[in-house]
């Protein structure tokens, strides 16, 4: 009993101490530490918001084992830029999980943000955004990838995504017939 109580108190003080800090420290899979504003983290990431609310943020670096340092750096970068450039929470609430609300076009800075990323970095960032429940970032990155596919032939898409064509000729012909309207120009 006594022990429990003491533990509870310690927990309590820890939480208070945490509440005082206005940043959280995140640790990538390869052990690098990144600081990000607590407010931005909580606002942009449902997962981090949950961790902050639940007190499971570690002062010495909250382990995010699924996220490499490059992707995490981009995440943090995004959070910082977001905090600087967008005053309202309107963007975040435009949930993408089922596209009832039409996708809100990326802002200029968001476009630049994803445009500068390499193919690898972009894909890693999508995964990080998904893992952290960052809907807007997921939105922006997925939108970027869908733009990469836009206007591309199946062959070109295979190249981008490194997919092997496992269709037989007949199958491919059949499906092209079915979707003939989309291939008007060949």
């Amino acid at each position: 009993m006594e022990v429990d109580k003491g533990k509870g108190e310690a927990e309590e003080t820890r939480k208070v101490a945490e509440a005082d800090r206005d940043t959280v420290t995140l640790k990538s899979s390869d052990g690098k530490l990144f600081e990000v504003s607590k407010e931005a983290a909580a606002r942009l990431s449902t997962v981090l918001a949950g961790m902050i609310a639940g007190g499971s943020i570690d002062d010495n670096g909250t382990d995010l084992k699924q996220i490499g340092s490059e992707a995490l750096e981009n995440v943090v970068d995004y959070c910082n830029k977001h905090a600087n450039s967008i005053p309202s929470a309107a963007l975040i609430s435009s949930s993408i999980s089922f596209n009832t609300a039409p996708f809100k076009e990326p802002e200029e800075w968001e476009r630049k943000f994803v445009d500068r990323l390499s193919h690898d970095a972009l894909f890693d960032l999508v995964e990080a955004a998904n893992f952290l429940g960052m809907e807007r970032l997921l939105d922006v990155t997925c939108h970027k990838i869908s733009e990469m596919m836009k206007g591309k032939s199946p062959d070109q898409i295979r190249e981008v995504f490194n997919i092997k064509n496992d269709y037989t000729k007949e199958e491919l012909e059949e499906i092209r017939q079915e979707l003939a309207w989309a291939f008007y120009d060949d």
């Binding site: 869908s146 596919m149 836009k150 206007g151 591309k152 032939s153 199946p154 898409i157 295979r158 995504f161 997919i163 092997k164 064509n165 496992d166 269709y167 491919l172 499906i175 092209r176 979707l179 309207w181 989309a182 291939f183």
Partner: peptide, 13 residues
């Protein structure tokens, strides 16, 4: 993605 992109995607694999 746009509908046309979906169609292209369907032909990928």
């Amino acid at each position: 993605a746009e509908a046309r992109t979906l169609a292209s995607a369907a032909c990928v694999s």
